[in-house]
Write a protein that binds this DNA or RNA. Structure first.
Length: 582
RNA sequence: CGGGACGUGGCGCAGUUUGGUAGCGCGCUUGCUUUGGGAGCAAGAUGUCGCAGGUUCAAAUCCUGUCGUCCCGACCA
C-alpha cells in the first residue's frame, strides 16, 4: 500500500513569479513548481517531486532494457585518463571532457560517456563467442563541460543518462539487437507520454555509421527535423537538400559594375532577378588550413556539417582570414580566384551554365559565368541546408520541417572501439576478432524537460499518468474542521489502499492557493472535497490535462472503490472513465 | 570563444544618467478579519547593493579589475 503524501510535509517550494533566468516552459515550470533548483550554470538539484519523476522515467527505461535482455550494471563516474589515451579520445574529445588530476597527479576525467570504461570492463573476460551477444546498461550521471549550457535540463553539464552497450560476433547479430533497442526506445517514448519521432542522424563524436535519434517534438527543441508523409524523417543536419537554381544564361557572360551591392538580396534587386538565380559564396578553410571557397544557390544557406564532409575539417573563416587571402567579402566569386584556393560547389549548380557571382573585386559581379568555361570547380557536393518543401529522398514529396528535442540515440558502432581498445573474442576456429558493438543512450533528465515542454498550459504542468510524481491530489478546501478534512482524508486513504499514489493538500491555505498550486504541479487528477460538494453528496474531479471537471457521487465512488478492491485493473479503467487516458 | 545584457533581502524589480548613506511588489513572522481560483487590515524581521581595488568629505551610483548569471552566434550526444 502506498502512503499518502502530505503537502504540509512535502518540500516543494513554489514560485509565484517566473524566474528571470529561465527562458523556456520546462525550465520555468520545473523551478516554479518546486521540482528542482539550480546550483550553478548547467547544474541542478532535484527536489522531492522532481526526483520522483526522474525515478519513474528511469524505471520505464529500466523495464524496457530488462525486457530485451539487457543487464543493468553500474560503472564509475570518475575515469582514468589512461583509457582515454588508449582510445585516442583524450585528445579528440576536446574541452567538453571534464578533466582533473588526483592527489598523485594522475590524469582523470568525469565520464561524458562510457565506451572506454565498458570495453575495459569486459575485454579480459568476455573472450569467447559462447558469451556473445551481450548487452549491458547503466543509469547514471554524465558530465560534459558544455560550451554553453542552457534551457535548464535541456543542455546541462551534469545530466542523467541511460547508456547501453552491446557486443556481438557478427554484424547481423548487432543489427538484431539494434532493432530491439530501436523498438524499445519507441516504447520508452510512448510510455513516457511523449509525442516523438525517430530520425536518421549524424553520428558525431561517438562514431559509427548507422544511427537514429529519437526526438520529442517541441517548438523549443534545439534540433531541426525534416519529415515526409511517406515515413522518411531525418535531422536536417544530414537531410539532402534539393535547391532549384535558375540559370542567367551563359551567353550573357559579362562583368558588370554593382556599386553598393554586398548581399544576395541587394544583388538580386539590382539585377532584377530572383535570389535563386544568384550564387552565394561562403569562405572557410579545411583541416590543413587551405582556403576553401564554397558556392551555393543564393536562396539557400550552407550546411556546415555537409561542408565538413566534402572538405575534412572545414570551418568558416573569420573576416580577418578572408581579408588575408585577398577576398572581398560580398563580391567573392569563382572566376579569377587567387591561386591555391579550393573550390566547392553545390550539386544543383552543376548543370547551371549561367551563374551570377562576385567578381572578386569590390563593386563588380559577373553574370552568365559558366563552370568549365569561365572557371573550374574542384568538388561538387550537396552543401545546402535543407528547406521546407524540398523533395523527400525516398518518395519525392515535399518535406515538412519541425523542431525536436533529442531524448535518445541508437548507434551501430561496428568494431571502432573494440579494435583500438583490444576488445577481442575467440571464435569456434580459435581465431581472435574484435567484437561488433552497439551503443544506445537515453537522456533521462532531458526526458523530464521534454515532457514538460509538451505537457504544459497557462496554469502549469500536466504530467502523463506514467511519470507523474503522484497520480491524484485530494484537495480538502478547509482543514481542521470535523466534516471536510475527515472526508478528504478518507478518500485519500481509500485511493492509496487501491494502490494509487495520492497526495493530500492538508495545508491550512485558502482554496485559491491550493487550486493554483495543484494546477502548477500538474497532478493528473484532482479530487476536490468541499463543504458545497459534500452537502450535495459528491466529490468534484478535475482532469488536469484537459481541465475538465465532473462530479462523482458518494454512491458512484463507493461502488467503484468496492469493485477496485476485487479487481485491481479497475484503477486503470477508472482513470480512463474520468478522462485521464495518458 | 565572439557579440549583447544583467548582478540591489528568499523571488521579481526600481533607484545608477545628475554621488549625499536603500525602496516597491510578492514571500516570511505575529495578530484580527476572511475562506470555492495565488485574500484584507495592522504590526514586524530580513540588505557589508556580487567581490576586490581606486577616485571622493561622501560610492548601489563614477573608474579599473575580477567572479557569477542570462540571451544570440559558433560548437556539441
Amino acid at each position: 500500500m502506498t502512503t499518502v503524501l502530505r503537502m504540509t510535509e512535502l518540500y516543494a517550494p513554489t514560485l509565484k513569479e517566473t524566474p528571470a533566468d529561465a527562458a523556456i516552459p520546462s525550465h520555468q515550470l520545473l523551478l516554479r513548481a518546486g521540482f528542482m533548483r539550480k546550483s550553478a550554470t548547467g547544474l541542478y538539484s532535484y527536489l522531492p517531486l522532481g526526483w520522483r519523476v526522474i525515478h519513474k522515467i528511469e524505471q520505464i527505461a529500466r523495464e524496457e532494457m530488462d525486457g530485451i535482455g539487457a543487464q543493468e550494471i553500474m560503472m564509475p563516474v570518475l575515469q582514468p585518463a589512461e583509457l582515454w589515451h588508449e582510445s585516442g579520445r583524450w585528445d579528440d574529445y576536446g574541452p567538453e571532457l571534464m578533466r582533473l588530476e588526483d592527489r598523485h597527479g594522475v590524469g582523470m576525467c568525469l565520464g561524458p560517456t562510457h565506451e572506454e570504461i565498458i570495453v575495459d570492463l569486459v575485454r579480459n573476460e568476455l573472450k569467447s563467442y559462447k558469451q556473445l551477444p551481450l548487452t549491458l546498461y547503466q543509469i547514471q550521471a554524465k558530465f560534459r563541460d558544455e560550451r554553453r549550457p542552457r534551457f535548464g535540463l535541456m543542455r546541462s553539464r551534469e545530466f542523467i543518462m541511460k547508456d547501453a552497450y552491446s557486443y556481438h560476433t557478427t554484424q547481423e547479430s548487432l543489427e538484431e539487437t539494434y532493432q530491439k533497442m530501436y523498438d524499445a526506445y519507441g516504447r520508452y517514448c510512448e510510455r513516457a507520454g511523449l509525442e516523438y519521432r525517430p530520425v536518421a542522424a549524424d553520428s558525431g563524436q561517438i562514431g559509427g555509421k548507422v544511427t537514429v535519434e529519437f526526438h520529442a517534438l517541441a517548438e523549443s527543441g534545439e534540433a531541426e527535423l525534416v519529415s515526409c508523409t511517406c515515413g522518411w524523417a531525418a535531422n536536417s543536419e544530414i537531410a539532402p537538400a534539393t535547391p532549384a537554381p535558375v540559370s542567367y544564361g551563359a551567353s550573357a557572360f559579362e562583368k558588370i559594375a554593382t556599386p553598393g551591392v554586398h548581399t544576395i538580396a541587394e544583388l538580386a534587386a539590382f539585377l532584377g532577378c530572383s535570389e535563386a538565380a544568384t550564387v552565394k559564396a561562403m569562405v572557410g578553410k579545411n583541416a590543413e588550413g587551405t582556403p576553401v571557397a564554397l558556392f551555393i544557390p543564393g536562396d539557400y544557406d550552407l550546411n556546415e556539417l555537409k561542408a565538413e564532409r566534402a572538405f575534412a575539417g572545414f570551418e568558416l573563416a573569420s573576416d580577418d582570414e578572408i581579408e588575408k587571402w585577398g577576398l572581398p567579402k560580398g563580391s567573392i566569386g569563382p572566376v579569377g580566384l587567387p591561386e591555391g584556393i579550393l573550390v566547392g560547389a553545390d550539386e544543383s549548380l552543376r548543370d547551371i551554365d549561367g551563374w551570377v557571382v562576385g567578381a572578386n573585386e569590390e563593386g563588380f559581379h559577373y553574370v552568365g559565368a559558366a563552370p568549365g568555361r569561365d572557371f573550374e570547380v574542384d568538388v561538387w557536393a550537396d552543401l545546402c541546408a535543407v528547406k521546407e518543401g524540398n523533395a523527400c529522398p525516398q518518395c519525392g514529396a515535399p518535406l515538412s520541417v519541425t523542431r525536436g528535442i533529442e531524448v535518445g540515440q541508437v548507434f551501430q558502432l561496428g568494431t571502432k572501439y573494440s579494435e583500438v581498445l583490444n576488445g577481442n573474442y575467440t571464435d569456434e576456429e580459435g581465431d581472435e576478432h574484435p567484437y561488433f558493438m552497439g551503443c544506445y543512450g537515453i537522456g533521462i533528465s532531458r526526458t523530464m524537460a521534454a515532457i514538460v515542454e509538451q505537457c504544459n498550459d497557462e496554469f502549469g504542468i500536466f504530467w502523463p499518468l506514467s511519470v507523474a510524481p503522484a497520480h491524484v491530489c485530494v484537495l480538502p478546501l478547509t482543514v481542521g474542521d470535523d466534516v471536510v478534512q475527515p472526508a478528504a482524508e478518507k478518500v485519500a486513504a481509500e485511493l492509496a489502499e487501491l494502490g494509487l499514489e495520492v497526495v493530500i493538500d492538508d495545508r491550512d491555505e485558502r482554496p485559491g492557493v491550493k487550486f493554483a498550486e495543484a494546477d502548477l504541479m500538474g497532478w493528473p487528477l484532482q479530487i476536490v472535497v468541499g463543504k458545497r460538494g459534500l452537502e450535495a453528496g459528491e466529490y468534484e474531479l478535475k482532469v488536469r490535462r484537459t481541465n475538465e471537471k465532473r462530479s462523482m457521487s458518494f454512491d458512484e465512488f463507493n461502488e467503484w472503490y468496492a469493485l477496485s478492491k476485487r479487481e485491481p485493473n479497475t484503477v486503470a479503467v477508472f482513470f480512463e472513465q474520468v478522462g485521464v487516458t495518458r
